[in-house]
Design a binder for these strands. Structure first.
Lengths: 127, 127
DNA sequence: CGCAACCGTTTACACGTGTAATCTGTCAGC
DNA sequence: GCTGACAGATTACACGTGTAAACGGTTGCG
């Protein structure tokens, strides 16, 4: 299942605020992006049809919840990006991001700690 | 300028083998991807029209060269990916890739060295 | 019961993209 | 000069996507 650029905008809001009423999704996304309410409704409809969102009626209101996990979608989009730009290789992508990203000391520490874990796991596997 | 998924396939070959004759591009990409020669020709044409490729006639043969730098396109595609999936934030993307990538010890060392450089630069700036 | 609110549903259109067929201009060999 | 090779140029179509208007079913309030 492919989520388009504009659909990511909608999904990111719903992942972070689930469950959420349609009115809130429509108002917030329309305002933040300069889109009309009709545009947001189309996207909600397409995402439901794709199986990315579920909707349920609550009186006169409708409520949206994600029907797919964000981390699964992130993984798929990341894979697609790596395949397209880096021939599927993560290392050059990592190098690119480390080079170009503005990282705080805290960020650097966190990433370093994860790399340490990575190395320890490699050594464990070799053992 | 936006390079599509299929166009990345063509550009990656030409970036890595420039200058390259049309026949070679067409044969290699058609074979590697199960596309017809006509499909590859369409993509070459679109890339020239977009300004991503330049072509020059050499007798009866045509030669292609990139008209844009790979690193600039990588940067733009990376920016687009970060904006779409991670709200523009590089750190969560880095964390995601470190978590999911299969990294060799050599890779880990290289990335760690770059992080060290990053920290030193931060300290320099603060000084 | 009528009406407004909610917002789903349907429809529409332009553009980019994936895929490919066909036609045509130029070049080089016989 | 004719012909084949090279491959550019043009055309075509289906689909996804961005954007949005218009219509209609259901609910709840006065």
């Amino acid at each position: 299942m492919q989520i388009s650029d504009a659909e990511w905008v909608v999904m990111n809001l719903i992942w972070s605020s689930s469950p959420i009423e349609a009115a809130e999704v429509i108002d917030q996304i329309a305002a933040d992006n300069g889109w009309s309410a009709a545009t947001v409704k189309t996207m909600l409809h397409r995402l439901v049809r794709k199986g990315a969102l579920a909707t349920e009626q609550n009186g006169k209101k409708y409520v949206y919840t994600p029907a797919v996990r964000r981390d699964a979608c992130v993984r798929q989009a990341s894979r697609s990006f790596l395949d397209r730009v880096f021939g599927g290789e993560a290392t050059p992508a990592l190098i690119h991001f480390v080079k170009t990203a503005k990282l705080s000391d805290k960020d650097v520490k966190e990433i370093r700690a994860m790399l340490d874990k990575k190395t320890n796991r490699n050594e464990g596997e070799q053992g």
